[in-house]
Amino acid sequence: MREVFWIPLGRVGYREVLERQRRLHELRRLNKVPDLVLSLEHNPVITLGRSADPRHILADPLALEAAGVEVVTVERGGDVTYHGPGQLVLYPILNLRGWQRSIKWYIRALEEVMLKVAASYGIQAKRVPSRPGIWVGNEKLGAVGVYVRGWITMHGLALNVDLVPDGFRWIVPCGIHGAGTTSIATLVGREISMAEVSARVRAAFAEVFGVQVRVRDPTGLEVMAR
């Protein structure tokens, strides 16, 4: 069975991981590293995708600065989003030629990973046509935002586990007015362990992508690529 390296990074700053992702994406394009997934939580950050409207940031820039929230423009598709503690983020850096050369297939696969994890907590989340991500009613539980060059992916998915603070109040998520966000903890009404969700996400990823995931130390890869 094909292997994917799984690299847990813990809680990390956005820009630091962005640079690492870009490096690894380049190395993957050159076939110097294998297919891999970065698994992490971010410090609070608001990011603007390629289709972002800056008016979808509601909070005052000075208030965000005072709260230590960075605002970063990135290459992924989509509008405005928030990342922060209590949200599990996956950045798969995969050569999709090994699966399917299909953007739709890939987005559906990322959604399927999150749907399976939600279902494992008894949450019946669903897809909504033309609104990628997973939804419970009119509230988004998990988001996707991807960048692909030469069929190599970067960026990925963000699943709301137990958000403190709930930084989505600072923005109009994905630029969709009138739709909210929710989390696993909110929906099940109890505290949820991030370690437990991480393990379930890893298992769901292995199942959906039909691979064996091998947990690797983050420092090993760049050394390997030299």
Binding site: G49, R50, S51, E75, R76, G77, G78, I103, K104, Y106, I107, P132, G133, V144, G145, V146, Y147, V148, R149, G150
Partner: peptide
């Protein structure tokens, strides 16, 4: 760069 399904796809 083109976009669909929240994905940026690079045209080379």
């Amino acid at each position: 760069e083109v976009e669909c399904e929240k994905t940026t796809f690079v045209i080379e």
